[in-house]
C-alpha cells in the first residue's frame, strides 16, 4: 500500500459517502444517473467475485464490502424508495447503458491477462468502470445546473482513479515486474473521460458558484 493508493481509496470512499449522504439525508437523487449507479453495481459485483476465495487483508475485504453494499443500496434507493425515486429524473437519464455492457464483455473475452472465468469478469469490470460514468456525464449536460453534492460526488469519483494512476506509476518504479497494461489503459481512459468535467468544475469552484 502506498500513499497514492490509500488517497485513491479514501477519495473513492468519500464519493460514495457523499452520494449516500445526499440520498439518505435530503432524500433526493436529483441530477444523479441511476444508469451509472447500475453500471457501478455490476462493476463491483464482477470485480469482487474473489472476495470469498482470496483474502488479501482486512482493509481490502472491508472496502470491498463497503463498495458492494453502497452501490447496491444506492440503486435500491433510487429504484424503490418512493421519496427518493420521485426525485429521479427518468426522462433525462436515457443513455443506453446496456449498450456499454456487451462491448466491454466482448473486449474482456478478447483482451485479458488470463483466460479464466474470474479473470475475464475482473477484466470486464475494468472496462465497464472506464465507461460507467458516461450516463452521468450525459445527464449532467442535460440538466445543466447541478447541486454541489452531486458535483462533489462526480469530482471525487473522477479523482480516485487519477490517484490510482499515480499509484501505478509509483509501483512500476518500486516493484519489479509490476506491469499491468490493461489496468493502466482502462484507468487512463476512465480518468480522461472526466477531463471536461474537471475543467468546468475548477472554473466554477474557483468562481465559488455551483457546477454548471
Amino acid at each position: 500500500m502506498n500513499i497514492f493508493r490509500l488517497a485513491g481509496d479514501m477519495t473513492h470512499l468519500a464519493s460514495v459517502l457523499v452520494l449516500l449522504l445526499k440520498i439518505h439525508t435530503i432524500k433526493s437523487c436529483a441530477g444523479v444517473s441511476l444508469r451509472t449507479q447500475e453500471l457501478y453495481a455490476i462493476v463491483f459485483a464482477t470485480r469482487y467475485l474473489d472476495i470469498f476465495t482470496s483474502f488479501v487483508s482486512v482493509y481490502n475485504t472491508f472496502m470491498k464490502l463497503v463498495f458492494l453494499g453502497s452501490s447496491f443500496s444506492i440503486v435500491w434507493y433510487m429504484r424503490y424508495h418512493k421519496a427518493v425515486h420521485r426525485t429521479y429524473d427518468r426522462e433525462q437519464d436515457t443513455f443506453r447503458h446496456w449498450f456499454l455492457v456487451l462491448p466491454c464483455l466482448v473486449l474482456a473475452l478478447l483482451i485479458h491477462e488470463k483466460f479464466t472465468f474470474l479473470e475475464v469478469l475482473w477484466t470486464f469490470s475494468l472496462y465497464l468502470e472506464a465507461v460507467a460514468i458516461l450516463p452521468q456525464l450525459v445527464l449532467l449536460q442535460r440538466t445543466r445546473n447541478i447541486d454541489n453534492l452531486t458535483g462533489q460526488y462526480i469530482f471525487l469519483l473522477g479523482g480516485y482513479r487519477g490517484l490510482y494512476i499515480l499509484n501505478w506509476i509509483y509501483r512500476y518504479f518500486t516493484e519489479p515486474h509490476f506491469v499491468h497494461w490493461i489496468t493502466w489503459i482502462a484507468g487512463l481512459v476512465q480518468t480522461l473521460l472526466y477531463a471536461d468535467f474537471f475543467y468546468y468544475y475548477f472554473l466554477r469552484f474557483i468562481g465559488g458558484r455551483g457546477v454548471e
Binding site: D9, H12, D50, V56, S57, N60, K64, E113, H177
Partner: peptide, 10 residues
C-alpha cells in the same frame, strides 16, 4: 505470483 499483486488493489 504477479497476478496476486494485481488483485491486491480495489
Amino acid at each position: 505470483n504477479k497476478n496476486d499483486v494485481t488483485k491486491d488493489e480495489l
